[in-house]
Nucleic acid binder design. Structure first.
Lengths: 174, 174
DNA sequence: ACCTGAACACCGTTCAAGT
DNA sequence: ACCTGAACACCGTTCAAGT
């Protein structure tokens, strides 16, 4: 006899996002998600192929969250600072978005504003390479910062602003 | 009655490195390492605190492997290319080295040549920020490349060389 | 049509018992 | 002093049985 679903893909994705935030990627288990949506773990497989697929959904939701967060900002400097602010507030989400576990399309959509900013600074010939320069730097910098890789002291904020200034100048001059 | 050790920290670390290479970080289990050194998993805890510590040792070994690989290269361009070559040949090692799971000292030692190259291009005032600009870009670029994040087509090699050229010019001009 | 309990094959880790 | 088997608490995943 058919019975109505007691949960949904949206509820599962939202629960996954909340658990990612509080317990990290390792804490994002099928059992934890199931408990949060009020169901037993095996039931999740009626909505999701496996854990990897669930993680992918959470990654896409995080990428969309990032995209809306970037909406208010403009220009290379503004976008880079907004990205860093968001990453600092949601480190697990940031790592997941840039780990390649989500769908490439959604990740590309989140990166579109930065691509546009690069295009406005540089000629059309190198716009893609310029966008890759900027995104690689920004995500690399923030990843290292979150990983605690800046061990040699100095002012990390200053280094970030230095990067913005150097890249802006370099792209303008090219 | 005292018995001689049937394995060693070096053997365990080497086994971990080999498994990381072939089966990835998820395949780097206590059982897999134990089997490879000819012992049962619980015995590993006589040599290593827990799995995290073992992963840290493997990360440090990978960082030292990277350091020796970089020895032949000089200058920002040469070092960046050597880093990318090594990362492409050993993606799991690269990710582990820059994930912050190893000891900060060893990771810093591996990054020292790049820091030196930056220092030679830029004045002493901004040498640390310049080094962080270059390492953030290089590791970010390679991470994105390994994650398959460059979805928009175009020539990835060209984008890498473009980054080298822009950063070199920017640091020289400052 | 969805949910559940039970089961399976795996983890990391602890610990008493062997040598 | 090191190694082992057995055990514990967890994983992800499958599947027959319930409703």
């Amino acid at each position: 006899m058919p019975t109505p679903p007691r949960t949904s893909l949206d509820a599962i994705t939202a629960a996954g996002g909340a658990i990612l935030e509080t317990r990290g990627l390792a804490g994002l288990t099928m059992q934890a998600v199931a408990q949060r949506v009020g169901v037993k773990a095996p039931s999740l497989y009626k909505h999701v192929a496996d854990r990897d697929a669930l993680v992918g959904l959470v990654a896409d939701a995080a990428a969309q969250d990032l995209a809306t967060h970037l909406e208010g900002s403009e220009g290379l400097a503004g976008l880079a600072r907004a990205l860093r602010t968001w990453a600092t507030a949601h480190p697990a989400r940031f790592r997941l978005v840039f780990s390649g576990q989500g769908s490439p399309e959604v990740a590309a959509a989140a990166g579109a504003p930065l691509l546009k900013a690069a295009r406005e600074l540089v000629g059309p010939t190198h716009k893609l390479s310029a966008a890759r320069l900027v995104t690689a730097w920004a995500t690399g910098f923030i990843s290292m910062e979150l990983a605690g890789a800046f061990q040699l002291g100095g002012d990390v904020n200053e280094a970030f602003e230095y990067g913005i200034a150097q890249l802006t100048a370099a792209l303008r001059a090219s």
